[in-house]
Amino acid sequence: MRKLLNTLFVMTEDSYLSLENDNVVVHQGDKKLASVPLRSIEQIMSFSYKGASPALMGKCSEFDVGLSFFSPHGRYYCSVLGEKNRNVLLRREQFRIADAEPNSLPIAQSFIAGKLFNCRWVLERTKRDHVMRVNVERISEKSAALHDAMQTLGTCISIDELRGVEGNAAKDYFFAFDDLILRDKDSFFFETRSRRPPLDRMNALLSFVYALLAGDCTAALQGVGLDPYVGFMHVDRPGRASLALDLMEEFRPAIADRFALSLVNTGAVKSTNFEERENGGIFLNEQGRKTVLAAWQRHKAQTITHPFLNEKISWGLVPYVQALLLTRTIRGDLDAYPPFMWK
């Protein structure tokens, strides 16, 4: 259980929430884990399969405390909303920002600033830790290009210009990506990013992990009351969670890319975990998907220090914390959205 940004995160998967004297009480079997006054929090996010008592749900509605339910793995189930339902005002403001480029541009710039910072950090960390095994000159060159790209973000005057800077920076980053693969280079290599379908094992792994991350970001946005389908940088398309794609940009290098590389470089994922299909695409097979999913859950349980809050949290909570920071930015409680820049 953690309390961050006036939000109570209940992470014990077999816990049950009840009401006692206007307090939310967290139970695990016959044991009381915690008691928190409802008046001291704005929201509860429960990642437990046991749920909460009707009395607590009613009191949360009365006190205007948001109560969102997720599976222990982070899949969004539903939210309990009171009569005042601040989500309506929050979403209306989200839509207004999305429809006005001068307002959406600063938030989109923050997303990309976080992405480029984390891309550069991934390169720099590999260069530092494996100096004798990688092409230091190439990595340094592309790291410098990412640094230069970060300096130009503030000068972008449109979303299209921002997309151009991000696209060129991504090319620089992926140009050096093959140097980050340190094991079984005959089976795992990277020439260029390929999707729909992925054309090699590394791209197949990245695509699968990106899909997992996008799901977590979508769940996080739904839990805080934002519409994951209305974005600030990715254009709206039927069935595409544009805001989730916006949010995950800053997480791709630090969470997804590092995770995928660690699976390959430690030998956790092998060439036999993939299959080729008739269209020439390469995909994880059933055993490969099971291996990655199990490792993904273990990875999300590892703890880090959040760079903005300076609090220890699990990797799995990062999208939820950033979604909360985004809601505060949209409501005007923060002057600017603080991107996730971890080092």
Rank of each mutant, 00 (worst) to 15 (best):
E311Q: 14
A55I: 09
T329Y: 14
K115G: 10
G281Q: 05
Y337A: 11
S314Q: 00
Y76W: 13
P319V: 01
D22T: 05
L326A: 08
L105F: 12
I107M: 11
F259Q: 05
T327A: 13
V134I: 14
E275W: 04
L146V: 14
I157A: 08
E137D: 15
N265V: 09
D236E: 06
N6K: 12
E275S: 15
L153W: 09
L123P: 04
L309N: 02
N23F: 14
E93T: 12
G164H: 02
S104E: 02
A323P: 11
Y49P: 00
K59M: 11
L4C: 07
V24A: 06
L89G: 09
D333I: 08
L324N: 02
L56P: 01
K31S: 11
L245Q: 07
D227R: 10
Q222S: 15
R2L: 15
A108E: 02
L8S: 08
T218H: 10
S143H: 03
A144L: 04
L245G: 07
N6M: 09
P54Q: 00
A108T: 09
M248L: 15
P198H: 07
E166H: 07
N135H: 06
R193K: 08
T291C: 00
G74M: 00
K185Q: 15
K142L: 00
L199C: 02
M248E: 04
G316F: 12
L324S: 05
F70T: 04
G74A: 04
R86C: 03
E249M: 05
A100S: 09
N279A: 08
A176V: 02
I313V: 15
S158Y: 04
L38H: 08
S158F: 07
R331K: 15
P106W: 09
R91D: 04
D216Y: 00
E311Y: 09
V10G: 01
H27T: 05
R289C: 06
S104G: 10
A323L: 10
T303G: 01
D99W: 10
L105C: 11
M248G: 01
E42V: 02
G316N: 09
M132P: 02
E161F: 03
M45C: 11
E62H: 12
S71A: 13
A149G: 01
K171H: 13
P37T: 03
I159T: 14
D14R: 11
F208I: 02
N87C: 11
A256V: 01
N310A: 12
A100R: 12
M341F: 03
S68E: 06
F175W: 13
R240G: 01
S194D: 11
E275I: 13
A254E: 01
S314R: 03
L309E: 03
A34S: 11
D246H: 10
A204K: 12
N118A: 10
N87T: 15
D216I: 03
A98E: 03
R289E: 13
Y49S: 12
V36S: 13
G164D: 01
F175H: 14
Y320N: 08
S35F: 10
E311N: 05
Y16K: 01
L199V: 03
S61W: 00
F251W: 04
G114A: 09
L180V: 02
P338N: 07
D236V: 02
M233Y: 02
L180E: 02
N203Q: 10
C119S: 14
K290W: 01
L284T: 08
Q94Y: 13
L5K: 06
E286K: 07
